[in-house]
Design a protein around this nucleic acid. Structure first.
Length: 101
DNA sequence: GTCGTGACTAGCC
DNA sequence: CGGCTAGCCACGA
């Protein structure tokens, strides 16, 4: 069940995540670990997924550009299939249902 | 204040 | 090489 978007709820670590994801250039993808590392918590890749789970700026934060370290789509609130479709629609190279970083 | 969950990663067997 | 376990961070109840 949707826990609704908590835009006004506590945000601190998440804010960094959104910022980092927003900085992802078009046609490129980043891994959860990479994002976590960029924000200063290389071991918070778990929280990264958590933050994107309540992505308040789904339209501004290209969470679909965030994939697993293996290039696997990982997960997507709106369907992993859609994620790959979106990536393919961009300039991201998809190979065998996996993202090429 | 404590436990459980989640879109993960790395190490170990 | 392949599968599994443990660990990690943040948030909700």
């Amino acid at each position: 069940m949707p826990k609704e978007y908590c835009e006004k709820q506590t945000i601190s670590f998440r804010e960094k995540v959104y910022k980092a994801v927003k900085k992802i250039p078009k046609g490129k993808v980043m891994t959860y670990g990479q994002v976590a590392r960029v924000i200063g918590s290389p071991r918070a890749f778990r929280a990264v997924g958590n933050a994107l789970d309540s992505n308040p700026d789904i339209e501004h934060v290209p969470c679909h550009r965030v994939v697993k370290s293996d290039g696997n789509p990982g997960g997507y609130r709106y369907g992993t299939k859609k994620k790959l479709s979106l990536l393919k629609r961009e300039e991201v190279v998809i190979k065998d249902r996996r993202v090429v970083i």
